[in-house]
Amino acid sequence: MGICAGRVVVVTGAGRGIGREHALEFARQGARVVVNDLGTGPGGEGGSAGPALAVVEEIRDLGGQAVPSNEDVADWDGAARLIRAAVSAYGRLDVLVNNAGFLRDRMLVSMTEQDWDDVIRVHLKGHAAPLRHAAAYWRERAKAGERVTGRVINTASGAGLLGGVGQGNYSAAKAGIAALTLVAAAELAGYGVTVNAIAPAARTRMTERVFAETMARPASGFDAMDPANVSPLVVWLGSEESAHVTGRVFEVEGGTISVATGWRHGPKIDRGARWDPAEVGQAVTALLTTAPPMEPVYGLRT
């Protein structure tokens, strides 16, 4: 038994890293899990059914229930098949965890069109497509008079909240995911579905090179960069207990959970008429003196 006992969960990108830890913790908490992963490299190259199958076997060894999926979540029809696979295997869907992704880090002046398109596709479309089909499933259940307790947990990033030098494509995709989370939370609330996002910091294949100095494994004691630290929040957000929380983005690192406040309407000056361009500069200067200071972009050297 656990806080997700009997719930059916789809986790994308669950073959390794943070996604694998999500899948294992959901299983420990009693959920039945669809382990989705294409088995690609850190930059999206290649593919293998092995990683998803390995996690399924781990879950079964724990005494849990799991099935593998190798669908491409950024393919519209593939995402639909993924959602159908959960319903076919276990008769329902309760939780969607969008986690799949990879990196193609480049400075903007060096980035190729393919670098841009591939990262936007796997992260942003790879969230939108499964979310769309899961939402349609839950809407159908709600309209049929069933009690729906759907949960979506998206994966944003600190780079999506504050930006990351050398990560224009990734930062744009993750910022889009944060905005998509807000929209989906508003649209799906009437069907009994909550939608939240996390911005995790942990040691994975994607981050080892970026944060090599700060993500070293400790010789002893608490490993703040262990990806398993991220999963308790995700599992709780996937439980029925989290019904009162939606449209939020949580940062999680080690033993720390914080809620990001995001963009808000700030100070304003209303002239009551169209501005003269020559007068705009003075107004902007006045606004910036009263606005909160900006958070620094990750990787910015000061």
Rank of each mutant, 00 (worst) to 15 (best):
T112Q: 08
L93T: 04
G168T: 05
A142P: 15
A173C: 02
A156C: 06
R121F: 05
G168Q: 02
G166P: 12
A184Q: 01
A179D: 14
G176N: 05
E113Y: 11
L124A: 06
L188V: 00
S110M: 13
A179K: 02
V148Q: 03
V97E: 07
A144D: 15
R132L: 08
G150P: 12
T149P: 05
Q114T: 11
S171F: 08
H133D: 09
L103Y: 14
L161R: 12
I120H: 05
K143Y: 14
W138D: 04
N99A: 07
G164M: 13
S110P: 09
L96V: 01
A184C: 06
A136K: 11
A134Q: 10
Y170V: 00
R104L: 08
E113K: 12
L124P: 10
S157Q: 07
H123Q: 02
H127Y: 13
H127D: 13
D118T: 03
K174F: 08
A144Y: 09
L103K: 10
R106G: 02
R104D: 00
K174N: 04
N99L: 05
S110A: 15
G166M: 00
G145L: 04
I177M: 01
N169W: 05
E187A: 04
L96C: 08
D94N: 11
H123N: 08
V122A: 04
V165A: 14
A159C: 06
A185N: 05
V148E: 06
A179P: 15
V122Q: 08
Q167E: 13
T149F: 10
E113D: 12
D105E: 09
V122T: 01
A100V: 06
T155M: 04
H133R: 10
Y170T: 01
I177Q: 00
A173K: 02
A144T: 10
R104Y: 06
A173W: 05
L96R: 13
